[in-house]
Amino acid sequence: MSIDTGTAAKVAKLARIKVEDDQLPALAEEFNRILGFIEQLGEVDVEGVEPMTSVAPQRLKRREDVVTDGGYQDKVLSNAPDAREGFFAVPKVVE
């Protein structure tokens, strides 16, 4: 598996991280080295093996689906880079 600059650009886009065009070849090369290291998993026979979903043998705890906490609008917004009138503010999304 070899990753080209086009794939690297696509991954950066999916991850929502801006990567300048001149950085893409180096990024692709890094991906190739890391994925080359991961490739050795191909040697392992996993026929009939279940993929792990939980490392602990226990069932996750359930609780009643009810409101247990809340009412902290000010606290929730206190770290926002831009909060207005009780909302998080972002650049215009719809034209």
């Binding site: 998993l41 392992v44 996993v46 093996v49 279940e50 993929p51 792990m52 490392v55």
Partner: peptide, 8 residues
Amino acid sequence: KARKVRTL
């Protein structure tokens, strides 16, 4: 694949 190897 990695999750299966993790099981092993």
